[in-house]
Structure formats: C-alpha cells, structure tokens
Amino acid sequence: MTKSMWVAVVILFLLFTACGVFMVLLQKDEELKNVHAFLTRNGINAAVSYRDISLTVADVAVLKGVSVRPRALPSLQNHTKRFTVRDYRESGGVPSKIAFDAEKVSLRLTDVARLLKGDDESVIDALAFFNPAEDVLNRPLYALMLAGCDRISANVTGEYAYSPANGNMRLKAGISDKCLGAWTVDVSLSGVSNAQQGQLVLAFKHFLRKGDPVKDLKNFLDGATVTAFSASYTESGLVRGYKRYIDTLYLRRGDAAGAAEAAAVVPAITGYLSMANAHRQRNTEIAKTLAAFLNAPDRITFQSKAGKKVPLRVLGGTFLRRMTDLLLRLDASVVLEKSTF
C-alpha cells in the first residue's frame, strides 16, 4: 500500500469517526425529535446545513442536501446528496454502535488547495520541487491533484462499534470515487478506555467549532492494541495517474527506462521492509506483490493473520514506518485481485 493510500485511509477514518460521533449526538437527542434543535444546542448548527431530514421508526435518520462548513475551511464548497445514520446503540450511556453512509459527497480538491495555500510563490515552489516519494505523505493533497484528481464525488460508508465493558472498538470505513478509487479499511482495537473513546466526540466538535481536533485525537489510541486489520484499494485511475505524473517528471515515454525503474522497485521496497523485520524472503514476496500492483494496479488487499496482536505503543517513527511495522507484526498478507470497479 502506498503512502497516498494510507493517507486516504486516515482521512477516511477521521471522516468516518467525525460523522459517526455526529450521529451519536444526534441519536442521543432523539427525544427532542428535532435535529435542528440538537445542532443548535451543540453549537454546530452554523457548521451544518441540510435541505431535508427524516426519521424512521427503525431508528434510521436521513439528511438530504447536506453541506458542512469546517472551521478550518469555512468557505469550502461541498455537498452531500444523502446522509443516512442507522443502527445506533448505547451501552451504559456510551455510544456502542452506529453506522452511516453518505451518498455523493462532492467537493473540489482545487478549492481545498486554494483555501489552504500560502503565497503564490510557495505554491509554485512546493509543486516545482515536489518529491514524488516523500511528498505523498507530506503533501497528500498535491499528490492527489498531480495524479489527476480534482472533482470528488464519493460514496462514503462507516461503521463504529465499541464495548465499554472490555474496551474493544471496531472501526470500518469505505469510500468509492471515480478518481480516488475504492478504499476499505476495517480495524479492531482492544484496550480503548471510555475516556479515549470520548475524545472522538470532542474531536468532531472541534472539527466544526473552535478547537484543535488533532490535539484531541493525539492520545486517542494510547495503550490500545490492534487485534485485526484489513484494508483494500481498488484502482480506478489514481495510481495510474500518479505514475503518469512520475513518467513526465523523469522524462519517460513508455520506453525501456521505465521498465528498468520498475525493476529497481522490488529491492527498494524489500530494503525498506527489512528495516522493520528481518524476514527477507517474506519481505521480498510482499515487495514483489506491491511492485506487481504498481506495475499493473488493480485491487490489492491487506489482511492481518488471525490471532495476531500488536500494541500501538511499540510502533515508532514516521507514519509510513509505523504502518509498515504494524502490517509486518500482524503478519498481514498482501493479495492482488482482478476487480470490476
């Protein structure tokens, strides 16, 4: 899995979490039978607007024509055709389950970049000297744009489950977009306290109101252990677009030089993996699989081995290093498949 994929997973996770918490709060105020009053009471009515709302007897809330005004990007134009929340459960006053799906979440990456940019020269310099490997994580937004993505119209799903009694949490999310491709991630955690779970709610509020959601989430997973992990990506053009950008950067025109570069990928990935785990044969197999995916991107799946557990505290270094270490410790398999995306 590339850096950009991991970044997308994290973004998705945060989006899922934020939306999930939003729906938890919404359900908690169900007695009020008035979502608008709920938003007003939580001070986020100014950050969320919608055209229509409906609540069914099956505890399914549906918002139509939703737009969100994040505190960091108040003027970002976005629109969600339909936002549905279902299966809300509580256990001892703590949200224990919720699921949601958002249909056609639309925004432009260019708009996001304009709102986040500094002066013009810094934008030009950042892109002129963009490093296609390192900057995938440092500047994921630019990486997506250089891959050719701009208009996003994604379907997003999310599931959250938490057991206050034993501190087990499961987070599941998916996103599907014509440009970004189809991503899924499913993580099971243990050792998550009520207080840590509550930080998710706080982070969501701060996403829309004054505050720092990143700070809220900083210690969210302290002491937690990953008990299962799976993720998948299905190509729809993102990786190919990024490869096309790299080809222009290195003046490749589909000639033998490109093949030579591809051949160099396996040792490079193997070397990187070996820094986390000395199992060179397995590392080489994984590297070959990743290289094959990069060469002909389609569907790739990461699946942890049953029974493997990894405490998050043992992971260190950069985000990519931590993720790599996590997957190797979980003895994750990497499988390529044909897709029909």
Binding site: A113, A128, F130, M145
Partner: peptide, 29 residues
C-alpha cells in the same frame, strides 16, 4: 538531465507540466 537542459538554455530549471498546471489552477494565475 533536467538540470543539464536548464543549463543548455540558461534558465534556473525545467518545469514539470502537471505540477505547473496544478500550480496555475491553485493560484488562478
């Protein structure tokens, strides 16, 4: 290679088309 190309015509750098088009789209200039 790009550095040599830049030297050949006496400029600081040779730019990448997708990168600079992205920049132009962002700064709208």
């Amino acid at each position: 290679y790009l550095g040599r190309l830049a030297y050949m015509i006496g400029v600081d750098r040779i730019d990448n088309l997708p990168a600079m088009l992205t920049a132009a789209s962002i700064i709208q200039k």
